[in-house]
Amino acid sequence: NKFNKELQWATWEILNLPNLNEEQVKAFIDSLRDDPSQSANLLAEAKKLNDAQA
């Protein structure tokens, strides 16, 4: 389904953001699992944090 694909994509993207530490990655992945419908928003937040920590 749509959420499953978005969840998989967001998870992959977050795992590959180079500037997030392990705790941050875990927190984003946990949030994705808690509410897959928020995957686009969570991915945007993760990318923003990744850029800020570059």
Rank of each mutant, 00 (worst) to 15 (best):
E6Y: 13
E23H: 10
L32S: 01
N1M: 01
P18R: 06
V25T: 08
I14P: 02
T11A: 09
N16Y: 04
L15G: 08
N41S: 14
A40F: 11
I29A: 03
A44I: 11
P18A: 11
L42N: 02
K5W: 04
E23M: 07
N16W: 06
K26H: 14
Q24A: 03
L43G: 01
N21M: 12
L7M: 05
N21T: 12
L20M: 02
R33H: 14
K47G: 04
N21D: 07
D30G: 11
L15S: 10
A46S: 02
A46Q: 00
L15P: 01
N16Q: 10
L42I: 12
L43R: 04
Q38K: 11
A46E: 00
E6R: 02
L15I: 06
L42Y: 06
A27L: 11
L20D: 00
A54D: 09
R33Q: 14
L43D: 00
I14N: 01
E23K: 13
L43H: 03
L43E: 02
L43N: 01
L42P: 01
K5I: 03
A10N: 03
L42Q: 05
N1D: 15
K5S: 12
P18Q: 09
R33S: 14
W12A: 14
V25P: 00
K48A: 13
V25A: 13
Q53A: 07
Q24M: 04
A44L: 12
T11G: 02
L49T: 09
I14S: 01
L20P: 00
L15A: 08
E13Q: 13
N16R: 09
Q38Y: 14
E13W: 09
S39R: 06
L43F: 05
W9H: 15
D51T: 08
N4V: 13
Q38W: 05
K48L: 13
L17M: 14
E22G: 14
N16E: 07
E45D: 08
N4P: 15
N19D: 05
K47W: 08
L17I: 01
E13I: 08
A54N: 09
N41V: 12
W9R: 13
E13A: 07
A46I: 02
D35A: 09
F3D: 15
K48S: 10
L49Q: 06
Q8D: 04
A40P: 06
S37I: 06
L15N: 09
S39M: 14
Q53G: 04
A27H: 09
L42V: 12
L49K: 04
D30P: 00
Q8M: 08
L7P: 02
K26I: 10
L32H: 01
K2W: 15
L20E: 00
D30S: 13
K2R: 07
P36Y: 03
W9M: 13
N19K: 04
L15T: 09
P36H: 04
K2I: 15
F28R: 02
S31I: 07
Q24H: 03
A10E: 02
I14L: 10
N19A: 09
L32M: 12
E23Q: 11
Q38P: 01
F3H: 15
A10P: 03
K26S: 10
R33D: 04
T11Y: 09
E13M: 14
A46P: 00
I14R: 00
A40Q: 13
A52L: 13
K2N: 15
F28W: 03
K48G: 07
Q53N: 12
L15Q: 14
N1E: 15
R33A: 14
P18M: 13
L32V: 04
F28G: 00
I14T: 01
E23V: 12
A46K: 00
P18S: 06
E45P: 00
I14E: 02
D51L: 14
F3I: 15
K2M: 14
I29M: 07
E13G: 07
I14K: 00
Q38T: 11
P36F: 11
S31W: 12
A10V: 12
Q8E: 15
N41M: 12
N21V: 07
N19P: 00
N4K: 03
D35Q: 07
N19L: 04
D30A: 15
L42S: 02
W9S: 08
N1P: 15
A44F: 11
I29S: 02
L49I: 10
N50M: 01
E22R: 12
K5L: 02
K2F: 09
L15H: 06
K26E: 14
L32A: 04
L17R: 00
Q8I: 10
L7W: 06
D34H: 13
W9F: 11
E23Y: 10
D35I: 04
D30V: 08
P36K: 02
A52G: 09
Q24G: 00
S39Y: 15
N19Y: 14
N4L: 14
N16V: 04
P18I: 09
E6A: 05
K48P: 00
F3E: 15
A54V: 09
E22I: 10
E13R: 14
L7G: 04
D35T: 08
F28T: 01
L43Y: 06
T11N: 04
E6S: 04
A44P: 02
D30K: 12
Q8F: 06
E45I: 09
E23G: 11
K5H: 05
L17T: 01
S39L: 14
T11Q: 05
A52P: 02
Q24I: 03
A46F: 02
E23W: 09
N50W: 01
V25Y: 05
D34G: 12
W12Q: 14
L20V: 02
N16S: 08
N41W: 11
W12K: 06
D30I: 10
K48V: 15
L7V: 11
S39P: 04
N50H: 03
E13F: 06
E6M: 13
A46Y: 03
N21G: 08
F28K: 00
Q24V: 04
R33W: 15
K47H: 10
K48Q: 11
N21Q: 10
K26A: 13
V25W: 02
K26W: 10
N4I: 15
I14W: 01
A40D: 06
A27V: 10
F28H: 01
L15R: 07
N21E: 07
N21I: 06
E6N: 04
K5E: 15
Q8W: 11
D35V: 05
A54W: 09
K5T: 10
N1F: 00
F3K: 15
L17G: 00
A44R: 07
T11V: 09
D35W: 08
S37H: 06
L32I: 07
P36D: 02
S31F: 07
Q8S: 06
V25G: 03
D51E: 14
A27N: 14
Q8A: 14
L17W: 02
A27E: 11
V25E: 02
V25R: 14
A52W: 08
Q24D: 04
I29D: 00
K47F: 07
E45K: 10
L17F: 05
S37G: 07
I29K: 02
W9P: 02
S31L: 12
A40N: 11
L15Y: 09
F3S: 15
N19R: 03
A10R: 03
E13N: 06
P18Y: 08
K47Y: 12
N4M: 08
V25I: 09
E13Y: 12
A54F: 10
S31M: 13
F3V: 15
T11L: 10
P36R: 02
A44D: 09
L7A: 13
E13L: 06
K47M: 14
Q53S: 08
A27K: 11
A52I: 12
